[in-house]
Simulated scan of single mutants.
Amino acid sequence: MAFGADELRVLRRALAIALHPTPLPDEDVQDCLRLAGAVDEAVSEAGRLRAFLLADLARYRDALPGSVTGYLELLQDAVAAGYDPRPDDLAALRALRGRPVAAALLQRCQVLAERSVRARLAGRSAAVTAPAPRGRLLALPGGRAAEREPERPKAPAAPGRPQTPGERPMPKPSEVFPPRRRPVPPPGERAAG
């Protein structure tokens, strides 16, 4: 997750206030609430993106052997991001081990699968899990909000749309993650055509 300059400024102020509580202007409270909302949205977007990538990986695996290049790339990316290879992945890689990339990936995935099994047998879960959803930040201690009655919460804006005119919109996954570049096969492996 990357923060912009304005978001870092708000985060820095919030941390300073947490260390040295002082009364806050309403603008600072609103900035902190907007930042908390943006972080919550980024976490949920990351979960949606992970689910999409895992479904994409399953589609490529089901379309083997025709989708071998795309499947190997997706599996490499997933393993690098902490994906625990499943038995279906190991079986697919065994069938493709005639390719050097698949053979190397099979070795790596076997080591990861073995670690995962040992961890489960030891009573630990090696699977990567999403963090538990945190409670919404409703108020900060101190500031003007503590001096008066709490305001009614406003209805949240639609996802991807700015809440205020000066706030920038939520980026799309295609804007955050650059397109994947396909490796160019060596000249000896290209098909004549």
Rank of each mutant, 00 (worst) to 15 (best):
V29I: 13
G37K: 08
T69D: 15
Y60I: 02
A91H: 12
L19E: 13
L112Y: 06
S67G: 00
G47F: 01
F177D: 11
P178Y: 02
I17T: 12
P179M: 07
L138Q: 14
Q163P: 10
G47K: 05
P153G: 03
R12G: 10
D26L: 14
M170P: 02
D28K: 09
A104Y: 04
P187R: 09
Q163E: 15
L74K: 14
Q163G: 15
Q76E: 15
D56S: 12
T22E: 15
S116C: 05
A119H: 09
A127S: 10
A127M: 10
V111M: 12
A38G: 14
Y83D: 09
R9E: 14
R120W: 12
R34T: 14
G166K: 08
V39F: 03
P23R: 08
C109L: 05
E151I: 05
A38W: 11
R97E: 13
A146K: 05
E167R: 08
A51K: 10
S174H: 13
L57Y: 00
R161M: 08
A192P: 08
F3V: 08
P187H: 03
R152L: 15
G193Y: 00
R86W: 09
P150H: 09
E41C: 04
R148Q: 13
A36I: 03
A18F: 02
D56P: 01
R94I: 02
D62R: 07
V128Y: 05
R118A: 12
P156V: 00
R124G: 03
P150V: 09
A91W: 10
P162S: 03
R13Y: 05
C109D: 08
F177S: 06
A92D: 02
D56W: 09
